[in-house]
Write a protein that binds this DNA or RNA. Structure first.
Length: 604
RNA sequence: GCCCCGGUGGCGCAAUGGUAGCGCAGUCGAUUUGUAAUUGACAGGUUAGGGGUUCGAAUCCCCUCUGGGGCUCCA
């Protein structure tokens, strides 16, 4: 049984002794924070039991941004309950009860928790030699390994946040408990900052911005998890896709296209019907043949590879496709653009010889960092996942592939973590999480070896020795899916796209109707030069037009009145509020041309 | 899929058993304005869909669809 409580270690005594924040090293500060949050969970359970004496306690660990505690109660908690619970908690904190650790025998523990079935289950699961400990404060007692802060008054700032259902031990076959989430910090200020971050995240929510900026929508009559892109969102997406295509051609990829459906036999050969059927839509029948919507693009790219016998001289072959796939996702997991049922992967499959593997992986990494730089993602974390217990393929190939992944990372001095045994059964992989402007991590990039499909489809190439060899196959997606990536981008930029991605780069604002004609002529020049602009011809005041453009987060507002018209100029206002005054049109266009270049980073 | 909370004009919200309303957006008109909301009028909803309770349902009950917070899942 994995430990469900913070691991009992030699730190316990130390943790109980230090109630201050004067800790050296981040880990210890984090350990203290966890102990403090876990202590807050105890205080919460205490309050819940006061209000709901019949409640059965689950577990209450600290989590990344706070803590939770699960309870079985006769009715779900309401927001009013949370207020009540929080009130009681604050009283307990004020009282400053000490947390006291006791160790006891298994029999005593079983007696103590006899009316707490979930606690009893935890006790049963503890290995025989394990020390069983409890922690008390005031009249409350909980089975617990600790550590805790010294007393309830060592919880400087806390707040309850939400209620949710959660299965006991995460098992959907077991009872659903009511989980209360809360958070706690070392000071009121840090708590306020955390709450402010939550609000900022809400303001940047891609679902809200998607509606406000008219980027995309979902519709009940179309179906859940299916996105329609509006002209503005479509523009952003096509700008991303155009850049993506140019880059891929530049780096030696070939762009291919494949259909959305394929016959059942294809998916039998690929193994999807055996291993992935629950993720696929039900088949369609055409002329008594079964067809499936594709959940992946690989079998199609393999078909292209197999269409001819390839010489080793032709390899590597890199087939890239913005391929739209459909996957059945359980209804409860769908989320805006981030988790959908139909999405377009920026997919590619590389077929190569064993000695090309490392260079190919390196090439993928270079491509990745060029893309991430362009979009302004500065922080990312890389994980290398190695062979799991259950796997297909030759262990030597695994070894070679894993080494090449590792080598490509090390050659670029990229730091990464290793997830031993975390690879897919068909091959090792590198995953890259990008960190957005709010410090949240999103998994987009994945580079995976596949030892399964080349075998299943019997892929071969003519090798230099005159024989037939099986190529290595690398599956990779850099942005992941266009849907998710655009969702990440929207939140990363807070809807204020940089100039090169802005669906509308400038709005022309005529002060009076007599300026419309001049605005139209400026618009024509901007468009002829490849810029994206609009004229606001509504019968509104200039201020209203500025406000509208501002709320649409258009980078430049070009105000035009008599003065500008005479001088062949535009009065430039940036969306950050900066007023650049009247600028000759030529000068403004030069500036626009410069600023709308795709950013290039240092190269990763 | 499971638990909980929602679904009312395009959007954001009000009306808690008794005539469905407000703001924004839209349309039409007046205004022609110098850096974040000029003004008047009009139009727009069989309250997600279906069934039930009731003299009467947006409101109460059941089912379905769908959104959200979680759990689980994420070849």
């Amino acid at each position: 049984m994995p430990p469900t409580y913070p691991v009992h270690n030699s730190r316990v005594g130390e943790m109980l002794d230090h109630g201050s924040l004067e800790t050296e090293g981040v880990d210890e500060a984090q350990a203290h924070r966890n102990a403090m949050r876990h202590s807050t969970a105890h205080v919460m359970a205490d309050a819940v039991l006061k209000l709901f004496p019949e409640a059965k306690m689950g577990i209450g660990p600290p989590v990344e941004n706070g803590f939770y505690y699960d309870f079985e109660v006769s009715r779900p908690f309401t927001p009013e309950d949370l207020e009540e619970i929080e009130k009681l908690m604050k009283e307990t904190i004020k009282e400053g009860f000490p947390f006291q650790r006791e160790e006891l025998s298994r029999a005593d523990a079983e007696t103590m928790f006899s009316d707490q079935p979930y606690k009893m289950e935890l006790i049963e699961g503890l290995p025989g030699e394990e020390v069983i400990s409890i922690y008390r404060h005031d009249e409350f007692v909980d089975l617990c390994q600790g550590p805790h802060v010294r007393g309830t008054s060592d919880i400087p700032a806390m707040k309850l946040l939400s209620v949710a259902g959660a299965y006991w031990r995460g098992d959907e076959k077991r009872p659903m408990l009511q989980r209360i989430y809360g958070t706690a910090f070392e000071s009121e200020q840090e708590l306020a900052e955390h709450l402010e971050r939550l609000e900022e995240a809400e303001r940047r929510d891609h679902r809200t911005l998607g509606r406000q900026l008219n980027l995309f929508s979902v519709h009940e009559e179309i179906g859940p998890g299916l996105i329609v892109w509006h002209p503005k969102g479509g523009r952003v997406r096509s700008l991303v896709e155009d850049y993506w295509k140019d880059l891929h051609y530049r780096l030696g990829y070939d762009i291919v296209y494949s259909p959305h459906i394929g016959r059942a036999q294809l998916w039998e050969t690929s193994g999807h019907l055996d291993f992935y059927q629950e993720g696929m839509f039900a088949p369609l029948e055409v002329d008594e043949q079964q067809y499936y919507l594709k959940p992946m693009n690989c079998p199609f790219h393999i078909a292209i590879f197999k269409n001819a016998l390839h010489s080793y001289r032709e390899l590597p072959l890199r087939f890239a496709e913005l391929g739209t796939v459909y996957r059945y996702e359980r209804s409860g997991v769908l989320h805006g653009l981030m988790r959908v049922r139909g999405f377009t992967q920026d997919d590619a499959h590389i077929f190569c010889t064993p000695d090309q593997v490392e260079d190919e992986v390196g090439g993928v990494l270079e491509l990745t960092f060029e893309l991430l730089d362009a979009f302004g993602f500065k922080d990312y974390s890389i994980a290398l996942s190695t062979r799991p217990e259950k796997y297909v393929g030759d262990p030597e190939m695994w070894e070679h592939a894993t080494k090449s992944l590792q080598g490509a990372l090390e050659k670029r001095s990229l730091s990464f973590t290793v997830d031993e045994g975390g690879g897919a059964f068909y091959g090792p992989k590198i995953d890259i999480n990008i960190t957005d402007a709010l410090g949240r991590a999103w998994q987009c990039t994945t580079v995976q070896f596949d030892f399964n499909l080349p075998q299943r489809f019997d892929l071969t190439y003519q090798d230099a020795e005159g024989g037939r060899s099986q190529p290595y196959m690398v599956h990779r997606a850099i942005l992941g899916s266009m849907e998710r990536f655009l969702g990440v981008l929207i939140e990363h930029y807070g809807g204020a796209f940089p100039l090169w991605l802005a669906p509308v780069q400038a709005v022309l604002i005529p002060i009076a109707d007599r300026h419309i004609e001049y605005c139209e002529s400026v618009l024509a020049k901007l468009e002829a030069a490849g810029f994206r602009a609009e004229v606001d011809t509504r019968g509104e005041r200039m201020n209203q037009k500025i406000r509208t453009a501002q709320m649409q987060k258009v980078p430049y507002m070009l105000v035009v009145g008599d003065r500008e018209q005479e001088a062949n100029a535009v009065a430039v206002r940036h969306r950050d509020g900066e007023d650049l005054g009247a600028v000759p049109l030529d000068e403004f266009m030069a500036r626009l041309g410069e600023e709308s270049q795709i950013p290039k980073g240092s190269g990763g």
